[in-house]
């Protein structure tokens, strides 16, 4: 899977209240959540995003509340990938469960500027900065997550287990 999009860079410790404030948590609808994505960081932030764009963040992205609405809001906003220095634990699990791709790339994040054009090849584990020419190796998805990814997410994984009685 290859994804091309513009980088939207945000800082460190972006919390889930910034990604989707609690006042919007009165729905589970992906599009409604997406329309208010990052409203807790800056009103109207979403207007800058074109479907396929990539979020780029500092350390501990997604800290705070366990709301799964956060990865759903990002997906609803048309953001399929987040590259960050590091991720908060609950957000990390939620994202894989929801099908949002996370790239934990440490200090390599500094090689990406706001507005840079990026290309991500998930199979090859490569993130290319088309603006600067920099190539960033993406660490392989941990084995614990691969089982889920292979099944197509947690919902199909559990579905299969229920069907087979395993």
């Amino acid at each position: 899977m290859s994804i091309r999009g513009k980088a939207h860079k945000v800082g460190a410790h972006i919390d889930t209240d910034a990604i989707i404030p609690a006042r919007f948590l009165v729905t589970t609808d992906k599009d409604k959540l997406g329309a208010n994505c990052m409203e807790g960081l800056e009103p109207g932030w979403i207007k800058r995003v074109t479907a396929g764009d990539i979020m780029v963040a500092g350390e501990n992205f997604g800290c705070g509340s366990s709301r799964e609405h956060a990865p759903i809001a990002l997906l609803g906003a048309g953001i399929p990938v987040v590259a960050a220095k590091s991720f908060a634990r609950i957000f990390y699990r939620n994202s894989f469960n929801m099908g949002l791709v996370l790239l934990e790339i440490g200090d390599e994040v500094d090689k990406i500027g706001d507005g840079d054009q990026l290309e991500v090849d998930i199979e090859k584990g490569l993130l290319k900065n088309l603006t600067t020419g920099a190539e960033i190796k993406v660490p392989a998805i941990p084995a614990s997550m691969r089982e889920l990814v292979d099944a197509g997410g947690l919902v199909p994984y559990v579905k299969k287990r229920i069907q087979t009685g395993a």
Partner: peptide, 29 residues
């Protein structure tokens, strides 16, 4: 499915928050 589930550690429990779909899996399995 609430990040402050860790509160029960005060009673000597291993208690942790997760997202809704992880919790759905736990409710089923």
């Amino acid at each position: 499915a609430d990040s402050h589930t860790c509160t029960y550690g005060g009673l000597g429990a291993f208690a942790t928050g997760m997202g809704s779909t992880d919790i759905a899996g736990a409710m089923a399995l």
